[in-house]
Every structure is written in structure tokens, then in C-alpha cells.
Design a binder for these strands. Structure first.
Lengths: 174, 174
DNA sequence: ATCCGCATGTAACAGGTTACATGATTCA
DNA sequence: TGAATCATGTAACCTGTTACATGCGGAT
């Protein structure tokens, strides 16, 4: 369901696009919120076309198909946003790791956390660059709040990793 | 894979336990990091037993089976924690929603965000109660860092929802 | 006796990943 | 002409959810 919603949202934001375009849009804009590969996107678009949520303006040089969202598609997106209670169920490898870290020797755990912190630090820098650049973009608002959320989440992970490493090292008096 | 690791971790932390015990432990301790139902846990334990990661001390009143982690199981857990690069791939309905919110009228989006903020506020209160209580618990450390991470993440979501709602309302001068 | 909680399982389906497979167009 | 990129698809497999199914043991 969520994949379908993400596609409807992207089509709303970008106007008509092909499966290929949407796959790249996924990576560049929404990947921080949702992941999908082309092998999942293409069949889904076909299903959505069959159900009347999008239409195909079959054209394009290679086999390229361009999809446009329909009224019904727009309605489905709206209903989902307004009426569906979001699933808050978590499944995060990072958090799982955090939970299990105390099963390792403190200095090993701390080293792993520092490495994590560095990864997140780099990711944070990237996102902040995007934020700085985006003021020039076409869509003035679309994705801005989501980007802000992403930045905060990455910063949180970096800080937590760093502080937890310090805490672990501190408590052993290494 | 991650489910298996979570189970090995819980067995390490709690000592021998049944599938039923682990299902409840999952809910009470680790659900913030990973979700699993008994229908997934029971078959996985059977597979793990077949592969020698856990042993069954078949006993117990009803069909109860008690599982114990083996040396090989402990090795597998350790290797995963140390060597496996954690998947950072995100899939969050909350973030997806955040991304798509600008497709709605500002006042509708703001109202949805306020409702979200309230949910997270309640969740935050719950987690903070747990943290306050946990100082009395048996395991001095296990899960403390993960709980801290969970609290920060929920707080972030509450604050972001609140602030984004204010921002949206502010920019329309309603 | 009856109900609740303990305790384990399976089957059907939905959602996702990896790998395989193919071919057209553009550019150097 | 060869490489990179555009462009779409399918098949096998793994993970996870929902629902169904069964039965024991303890407490009232």
C-alpha cells in the first residue's frame, strides 16, 4: 500500500513520469522515507494502471511509458493521508544493534559506535548541503519538511552514537 | 537474519527461555527496535535448533520447550555485531506522510500534524516512566542505551510534528 | 465446570530483494 | 563499434502479517 501511495505522491509532485523517472525520483527525493527498486515499481505501476489510478500515455523512444495520475488516484492519496492511522511499527537494524551492544566487551562496543557516528556525520553533511542548495529548486515547499525531519534524525543518531560510546568507555575507566 | 539475531540476543540476556517467553520479551523490551509475532518466532526457533545455534531442553508442562543459546549461536551473534555493516535503509510511514503532506491544504496538514504530536507526546511519557522505573531492574545495563535512543527518537518526532504544524499555519497567516 | 492464560503451531497472502534477461539510443 | 545509460520486465526467494487451529493447566 505505501509503495502505491509514494508513487501517487511523486506523480502529483512531478507531473507525468515514466517508471524509470520514478525509480530515480525515489532515490533522489524520498529514499530517506521509503525504499523501492525498479523491480517493485514497474509491476506496481502496471497494477495501478489496471485499477485506474494512473493512465499511460504510451509513447517515448525505447519502450518508455509515461504515467499520469488520475482523479481517482488523487482521491486515493488524499484519503490515505487523512484517514489512515499511520503504522508506527519500528524495524531498525541500528536500534537492534544498540540494544545488543552490551553483549560485547565495552571497548569493542565503543569502537563500533564511533564508526557509526562517523558514518552519520558524513550523511548529515550531505543532507545539509542539499538543504542549502534546495532554496534554488523549483518546488518551493515539497519535501522541505521531510528533509528537515531527515536531518534531525541523522543528527540524533550521530549524537547518540558518540555519547553512548563515551558513556561506555567512561564507565570502564579504560 | 535480524530476527534470528534478536532472538540470540534475548537468549543471551535472559538465559534459557521458551518461544512464548521470547514472544513476550520481544514486546516488552525490544519492540521499539524490532517487531515479531509468535507466528514468525516459533518457526525461526525450530530452524535455529536444526542449525545448532540453540538447543532444546524439551520439558515443561504444556508443550513448553526451553531454548538455550549454544557456543555457535553466541559466535554468530558476535560476528553479526562486529562484521555486518548495518542496513540503513529506511522505511517509515511517518516520514512518507511528512513528505506527502504538502499535497494537502495547509490547515488540514497542520491538524494532522498536531494529532501526531499528541500521540508521540503520550508515547514519550510512557517511555520516560519506564526509564524512571528501570533503575530498579535486574539487568543494570541491558537495553538502557536502546531505551535512551527510543526516547530521543520519539521526542524528535513530537517536536518536529509540532513545529512543522506551526510553520505551515504561520505561512498561511490563517 | 468454565474461563483465562499458557503454549505451539500452520497456511495463505502481501511486500521486498536479488539476480537474471533483454533491447534501444546516444555519444565518443 | 563499443560503452554507458535509458528503459522495461520476470522469477526465485526471503521476510513478515493475518487468520486459523489446537490443546493443556490452573484458578474460581
Amino acid at each position: 500500500m505505501s509503495l502505491r501511495i509514494a508513487l501517487l505522491g511523486l506523480l502529483t509532485a512531478s507531473g507525468p513520469a515514466s517508471g524509470y523517472d520514478l525509480t530515480k525520483l525515489f532515490e533522489s527525493s524520498i529514499s530517506n522515507a521509503w525504499h523501492a527498486r525498479h523491480s517493485q515499481i514497474y509491476p506496481e505501476l502496471n497494477k495501478m494502471a489496471a485499477e485506474g489510478l494512473v493512465t499511460v500515455d504510451e509513447e517515448g523512444p525505447r519502450g518508455r511509458k509515461t504515467y499520469t495520475i488520475t482523479e481517482e488516484g488523487a482521491r486515493e492519496l488524499r484519503t490515505w493521508l487523512i484517514e489512515k492511522e499511520p503504522s508506527r511499527s519500528q524495524r531498525s537494524e541500528v536500534a537492534l544493534r544498540a540494544f545488543l551492544l552490551p553483549t560485547l566487551e565495552p571497548h569493542v562496543a565503543a569502537a563500533l559506535l564511533r564508526a557509526e557516528a562517523e558514518v552519520y556525520g558524513r550523511r548529515l553533511a550531505m543532507l545539509e548541503t542539499i538543504r542549502a542548495t534546495k532554496s534554488l529548486a523549483k518546488q518551493p515547499d515539497f519535501g522541505r519538511h521531510a528533509l528537515e525531519l531527515g536531518i534531525r534524525q541523522v543528527r540524533l543518531l550521530r549524537d547518540w552514537s558518540e555519547e553512548t560510546a563515551a558513556d561506555i568507555e567512561g564507565s570502564t575507566g579504560s
